[in-house]
Nucleic acid binder design. Structure first.
Lengths: 245, 245
DNA sequence: CGCGCCTTTGAAGGAGCTCAATTTAGGTGG
DNA sequence: CCACCTAAATTGAGCTCCTTCAAAGGCGCG
């Protein structure tokens, strides 16, 4: 059950951030070359997580945050009665675990939706380096703040949008994030099930499936199981802006 | 329209945090006496906001975060078509504005629900002091993290709970926060309208009103307009834990 | 004391849920 | 390589919880 640990002892591997092709998206964003070199000491170990395995679970002691190097995750919280709320889907370059700082325990579960690899960033070290490198400090604050803003967007989804608006917003968000990583804006494979999308969007899996089918009929997208092709991004955006009520 | 600014130049007033009775709840939490004295230089000005006025609006340049000294606020985001999502209600000792760090602009509106006073904390200064005082740095990170965790709780509300569960959770949360401030856990006045509660909980105001009436009939609470008395906190908690589906 | 805003309550309607059956895809072992 | 098995997805039909629309009552404030 133990996730594979990969100590970065070999010199080439130790260049964790300075050689990483995600450095423009990830924690080192906006840092100078010299500053990034310092970060190489911050990330001493990587972890491989197989599809379906947990990176961490709610209740576990918080010690580090994680930068996703490759792969795809979901985070969720569970109610005592077993109901699940997916709080987010995370991809390469994004940070996991910031929820644990406040209570020194993780407050949600992080599960790999495909075989993944993360960079382990011991949080005490991050705070130490942040006191030295103000650009790092500032960027970390920005990342936390953006997480808050993202959460507000999800509240908006859940609080005021109707089912098809939610799904359209979800697809456009995925598209935009894939684009930022150099993938096609219009064609991608979903890593999550209809049930997980539904949990994220506050809908039942049948409703998600029906909305996909509807979009398909209307020519907005093509869906075949997990494969999505966006045919009319403008049409999806219009769904969001036009009030129905 | 301009909010009243109060420069803290008189020596007694300059002791912003060290003399504040909220220091156990607010930003200085966990700091040593000497460290708190340093914070007095961080808070150079306070602002009074009258009921109904904005502390800040989405789109405005972000320069400072705000600690609520007295009063009560709501934060909300608006969709182009005018639909509103209330993202939170904030009371004394809580921090406003952390959403603005990421984009250097405020991303939501903060509105006073009663006449209020806030301590202005210039963010650049906060980062400066954070580099010197590691306890401050760490505590600030905790506050941001707790905001993320709080948001996950709201997603849970919105995503999986039914109307009465949402309202019960809302009342219990308020009760707990009033208690932490030395007020009665069982009796308080709501500062927000049914519509604002509804927007926060993803419900229509009529649904909120009906749920209040139902709780009243069942003896869980007494409601008279904005005055709430919790009669059976255990009963409200039970509403949350028992599955219906 | 009158006006506006908030709240309450009723009745009808609808978006999304539940339950259920069928299809499809992917993995496994013979 | 095919048969089998399981998990995921699709689709239909009926139902329910919340919304919508409407009207009346209450409170605070100028």
């Amino acid at each position: 059950m133990h996730a594979k640990l990969i100590p970065l002892s070999v010199p080439e591997l130790r260049e964790a951030c300075s050689q990483c092709n995600l450095r423009e998206l990830c924690l080192p964003m906006g840092l100078s070359g010299g500053e990034i070199d310092q970060l190489d000491h911050l990330v001493e170990v990587r972890r491989r997580i197989q599809r379906g395995q947990h990176l961490y679970r709610g209740g576990e002691v918080f010690e580090a945050i994680y930068a996703i190097k490759t792969g795809f995750f979901k985070t969720d919280v569970l109610l005592e009665d077993g109901r699940e709320q997916v709080t987010g889907f995370q991809m390469a370059g994004e940070i996991l675990g910031m929820d644990g700082i406040g209570s020194e325990k993780h407050t949600c579960n992080a599960v790999a939706l495909e075989d993944s690899e993360v960079c382990v960033i011991p949080f005490a070290d991050l705070e130490l380096y942040s006191r030295e490198i103000s650009a790092l400090q500032h960027h970390f604050h920005k990342m936390m703040s953006r997480e808050i803003v993202r959460d507000h967007g999800v509240m908006m989804l859940l609080g005021v949008m109707r089912a098809e608006e939610r799904l359209a917003a979800f697809l456009l968000n995925l598209s935009q994030r894939f684009t930022a990583r150099g993938y096609s804006p219009t064609e991608f494979n979903l890593r999550m099930t209809r049930g997980e999308i539904g949990s994220y969007l506050g809908l039942k899996l049948e409703t998600v499936s029906r909305a996909f089918s509807r979009f398909n009929e209307e020519g907005l997208i093509s869906v075949h199981q997990k494969h999505i092709q966006i045919r009319d991004a403008a049409g999806l955006k219009k769904l969001l802006s036009e009030r129905r009520t």
